[in-house]
Every structure is written in structure tokens, then in C-alpha cells.
Computed example of a mutant assay.
Amino acid sequence: MYQRILLAFNGSPDGREALVQAESLALACGATVHLLAIIDPSESMLVVEAMSFTPDNQRFVVQIVLDEGVKRLRRAGCTAISELKYGRPTEQIILSAREIDADLIVVGHRDQGTLARWLNGSVGESILHQPPCSLLVAVKSERRASNVTPIQQLTGRGKR
């Protein structure tokens, strides 16, 4: 079914939920997961796990988040590859999906109100306008406890 899954991953709680769901699918299908993080140069600050970072160390922090995602997938028995790109997230996700000939794109769902969604946009919705393959928007079920481990617990490191 799925052989190449592209996971847009940023280490946020929504991104970690997408990681969990991509992991389950990859294990069921024997797929390779390509983790993709995107640094949007138009954003002046990155926020991961309620920690903010300046653009000077942004690449370093994003690479740590990607590495932790790959480690989690590999510990579960998945084949995982990571890549860091710069640009507008929707464009980079679509471009990467085409480059790797992805069967499925997995993104997290950021819960925000109507006005915020209108102002900020939705990556998942934007991808639907020009989908290169199937798209899964991972949403955490209200009925089950979170199975998402925060990044600090995975690394054993505290906040910096």
C-alpha cells in the first residue's frame, strides 16, 4: 500500500501525534518514513515545546528535533530518513513529496479557531489544493490518552 511516507515534522505536540500515526502506518506497511522539517525564513522566531529560539540557532534546534524523530522511528523498527529545507512549508512539502515519489503525506493538525486559521492558514488544507499523493492530517482522539512523548523526555535533556 504505502512504501514512502513523507512526514512534515516540527516537534510540536501536533507534529508528535503525526509522528505516532506515521510510525503505525509505516510498521503496518513496511514503508520508509521521510521526516521533513522546514524553516520558513519569513518567520523570525521558532517555538518548540514552549521554548523560543532566535534564527541564529534555529537550524541547530530543528536538526535536534528531526534526529529525535528519526531515533523514535528506528527504535520502533521503521526505516527513517530526515531532511531539513528552507522555504514556505506547503511548497516544500509538495516539492519533497514529488522528489521522493511519496505515497502519503502526513501532517499534524493544529487546533485553532476560525479567525486564526483564516489569518495563519492551514498547511494540510493548502496541500489539498495541489495534492501530489494522499494526505493524512493526524488528529489526536479525545477518547484516548496521549501516546506522544515530549522531546525532552526522549532526549533525557531538560529545557535550555
Rank of each mutant, 00 (worst) to 15 (best):
I127T: 06
Q152L: 05
D40W: 13
R75L: 11
R110P: 00
K85S: 12
E99N: 10
W118C: 02
Y2R: 01
P150Y: 09
E17W: 12
G108S: 04
D14F: 11
P13N: 03
P55Y: 09
G77A: 03
E91D: 15
L136T: 06
I151M: 07
S146C: 10
S82D: 14
D67L: 03
I81P: 00
A102V: 03
A102W: 08
T79L: 04
K159I: 11
T155Q: 10
A37Y: 15
T79Q: 11
L119W: 14
S126R: 07
G113N: 13
F53M: 03
G108E: 04
L95S: 13
V137P: 01
E142S: 10
C78N: 14
S126M: 07
H34E: 08
L95K: 14
A50R: 13
I127G: 01
R157C: 10
A116I: 06
A80H: 04
D67K: 15
E17A: 06
R143E: 14
N57L: 07
L84D: 03
I39F: 05
Q130R: 09
Q3C: 00
L66S: 02
L19P: 00
K85F: 08
M45Q: 14
N10H: 09
V48N: 06
R110K: 14
K159S: 12
P150S: 03
A37G: 13
D101L: 01
T114E: 11
P55I: 06
Q153T: 10
A50V: 07
R4T: 02
I105E: 07
D14Y: 13
V139C: 07
L19N: 02
A28R: 14
K159E: 11
G124T: 09
E68L: 15
V107S: 02
Y86G: 03
Q112S: 11
V148I: 12
K140L: 12
P150V: 03
L27G: 07
E91G: 10
V33Y: 03
F60R: 15
A37L: 01
H34D: 06
A97Y: 05
G30M: 03
C78Y: 08
I151G: 01
G124E: 08
V20T: 09
V48L: 08
P41S: 11
G15L: 05
R98F: 05
L46Q: 07
S12Y: 12
G77E: 01
R74N: 02
T32K: 11
H34C: 00
Q63W: 05
T149N: 01
V65L: 02
A26V: 04
S42D: 13
I5V: 14
S42W: 13
A138D: 08
Q112Y: 12
S126C: 04
E91W: 09
A22W: 10
P13M: 04
